[in-house]
Every structure is written in structure tokens, then in C-alpha cells.
Design a protein around this nucleic acid. Structure first.
Lengths: 219, 219
DNA sequence: TCGCTGTCAACTGTTAACAGGAGACGTCAT
DNA sequence: ATGACGTCTCCTGTTAACAGTTGACAGCGA
């Protein structure tokens, strides 16, 4: 029995617009005109307004009253904010995951960590980046904390946009994996302190690598 | 020259609805009917929908598709989520505040801490609760971290709702101050580790007190 | 008495139309 | 040539109307 598709145009528009932005079709700084998007999606402006409001909360869009909406442009300052907040959130997530994860959860994490390595080995940066985000997302999900997940998801969208923004300029960034295993080990051992420390350190080095690249990139 | 008030009905409706909820006029579980609110605010349903969407992001309202919106009811599970996330966010905030706060910032914090004590001494729980939130908010603002502040503000709204929900049942909860001073001391000293630890410990004991109360309350 | 079915009212999701503000462009004066 | 002013167009904020769903309730049958 196939359920009948019961689309909510607002949600559909949100998903469609998010994809347009994250796929780079609408570049950072791009002005977003409600009527234009509505026509593109085949709806009226209502659902588009919903989508813009949603994505503003996700940090992908900024709105200026009576001026319009724009795809956000992330700066190095934003990178610093994103990573510092990720450390706080994912540190908590890893600790909780360490206490709650079962054997199959750990196996799943290992599989994901391996996927990152495999993609990196093939120099498939796109796939490696996505696998990396999925690895981190899996830990957040394991934490079993709705509000934590909500906050993290907003950052995740911005991270994808950030990567898009960077690889567009020069596709050279990707955290070499490796310490993903440390994280999984700590979670498997149920060691909350070490799990937190491993995640924090991992994110720290990722940020440093990114910042170093941006520094050389900018002058 | 007084600026001409340039109201955005959407924002105004959000503020109005938030006040209605946080003042307890719309109790937890209350069904929120768009047309009713629109009439109450003297607008059409558009701005009301904006407000509902906003407050859903803030965690004050839940929406079920085609079923309507409701004021959220917070459970002990939600309390646990709120406090664990607050520890993560405010721990980071305190650390950043410790590195960035100037002498006048510290003085401001001391003033706020004293206000909490004063209100508590007069057994004015309402005022003490508000002063407490403002103290914590001040630290978050000092952190100078937009995304952190955004995440925290969502939780803050839910905290106010939580207090409203509880003091309505039995107005007996209020974290006795005291360790607020420890937090300020650490920030003044510029000691990030201690600042984080002080905030975490403060929130930890506040949560325990609250949970203990809820445990006795429920049976 | 209990369960099923069909009707009905209410409310949400969606659309189309209206009004005012903001920026762009051309014109005019200096 | 340059700057100020006025017009004009486009777009957002807002409103009102339309259509489909949901839950409730009454009536019917077992």
C-alpha cells in the first residue's frame, strides 16, 4: 500500500531552495526574489516566504526588512563562530554518545569513518566532505538530544555552504581523516571525557587547517 | 527627532504572542488558532503565521501539519535537555567572556548578581528569576558570538516558559544565588577554565534542585 | 450497546490582489 | 560635469478569498 504523497508546499519549497543554495546554483550574495522563486517552484509566494524564513533560521539566508533576502556570504569570522560552537555542541554529543552507544552503533560509526578514508583516498573531495558530515551527524543523532540536534543541524547547513563556497574558489580543502578513529574508540570505551576531548581536538585541527588555507588564500 | 515607528507586523505579532505565552495568558497545551490570534492582534493571518513559525523555532510552540499549533508543555525530559545544552553553551560563553570582559563589564555583572540576591532576599521570585536570566544573558552577550547567542536565546525563552509553568503549580523554586559571584570572579581573573567550570557547576546544581522539586511534586 | 458510515463545521494551506517603500534612472539646475 | 530632485518600476508586507482536511457528531446497522 503506497501512501499517497501528501506534500506540504512550504516544506517542499524549503527543501528545494536549500538544495539550490547548497548545490551552488544560487551563489552567496545572490538576491532572492520571492516572485521569481515562486514561479520557479510553481507555487505562490506563500510557501516561498515560509522557505525563506526557515532558511534564515538555518543561517543560509539573510533578510533585510523591505529590502529583500540574500544568500549569506560566510567570512573567516563566521568560520571561527561555526567551529567554536561545533566544539561545544559536538563535545556534548560525543559524551552522550559514549554512554548510550551500543555495539551496532559503534559498528555504524566505524563504517562511516572508513567511508571518509575511502573517499579521501580516491581524492573525491565532494564525497569525502559529505561522508565527514554524515559521520559527525551520526554522533549527534546518537546523543539522543533533540535540541542539541536542532542547533547542530543549523550549523551543518552552514558548513555545507561554507565548503561549497571554498571548493568553488579552490577545491583543496579536506580534513585528512585519521582521528575519526580516536573518536570512535573513545565512544566504544564509554569514556565520556576522552570522547569529548577527541572531538574537540579533531574540530580544532580541522579549523586550523581551514584557517591556514584561508590566510594564504586571501592575500 | 523621534524616529517614526516603522512596525513590521510580523515582528510585532511575534513579540505579542511571545508575551501572551510567557505571561501565562496562553497556558501550555493551549491550542492556537490563527484566525483567533489575527483578530486579537488586529491583523490578518499572515503576520500571525510568521509569529507561529518564529516561536516554533524558539521552542515555545509546536505545530502539527493540518492540525494546528499549540503552546508547548515541558516535561522533566525537556528540563534535562535544556540544562545540558545550557551547560555546553554557557560554558563556552563564560570562557569567551573571561578573555574579553573589561572592568566595566565585570562591574555590570556584579551589579546584576547583587540584584539577584536582593530580589531573593525580598522573596520576590518573579523578579529574582528575571534577574537571574539577565545575568546569564549578559555573559552570553559578552561572549560576542552571534550564533551562540541565537542558540541560547531559544533556550532562554523556553526557560522562562518552564519557570512560568512551575511557579504556576507551586511558586517555590529559585536557585539560591551565591555561586554567581564565583562566576564573576573567574571572568574577572580572565581564567577561562574556571569560568567554564563555575558556570557548569552553577547550572548543574540549579538543575538538580529543580529536578528534586519535580520528583517530589509528581507523585 | 457498540461500531461503522456519512455529513458538517472549523481551521489550515494556498492563492491572488492591493498598497507602500526602496532603489534606479533621467532630468534639470548650478 | 556634477549633484539634487522627481518619477517610475520593482518588490516586499499585508490582506482577503478559496479549497481541501481533520475531527466531531449524528444516524444507521449489528
Amino acid at each position: 500500500m503506497a501512501l499517497i504523497k501528501r506534500v506540504d508546499l512550504g516544506d517542499a519549497a524549503t527543501a528545494a531552495l536549500r538544495d539550490l543554495i547548497l548545490d551552488g546554483e544560487l551563489p552567496p550574495g545572490q538576491r532572492l526574489i520571492e516572485t521569481e522563486l515562486a514561479e520557479r517552484f510553481g507555487t505562490s509566494r506563500g510557501p516561498v516566504r515560509d522557505a525563506l524564513a526557515d532558511l534564515e533560521q538555518s543561517g543560509l539566508v539573510t533578510s533585510q526588512a523591505r529590502r529583500g533576502s540574500f544568500v549569506v556570504e560566510l567570512s573567516t569570522h563566521d568560520v571561527a563562530e561555526l567551529y567554536s560552537l561545533r566544539r561545544a555542541l559536538e563535545g556534548l554529543a560525543a559524551a552522550r554518545a559514549a554512554t548510550s552507544a551500543g555495539a551496532d552503533d559503534v559498528a555504524d560509526l566505524r563504517r562511516r569513518a572508513a567511508e571518509i578514508g575511502a573517499a579521501a583516498a580516491e581524492a573525491d573531495r565532494r564525497r569525502a566532505g559529505e561522508a565527514d558530515m554524515e559521520f559527525h551527524r551520526a554522533i549527534v543523532v546518537l546523543a539522543g538530544h533533540r535540541r542539541l540536534a536542532d542547533s547542530w543541524n543549523r550549523l551543518a547547513d552552514q558548513m555545507v555552504l561554507l565548503m561549497r563556497q571554498l571548493t568553488h574558489v579552490r577545491p583543496d580543502i579536506q580534513a585528512r581523516g585519521g582521528d575519526h578513529d580516536d573518536i570512535v574508540d573513545a565512544i566504544e570505551a564509554g569514556d565520556t571525557e576522552r570522547a569529548t576531548a577527541a572531538v574537540v581536538q579533531h574540530l580544532d585541527s580541522a579549523e586550523r587547517a581551514l584557517m591556514g588555507f584561508l590566510a594564504t588564500e586571501q592575500e
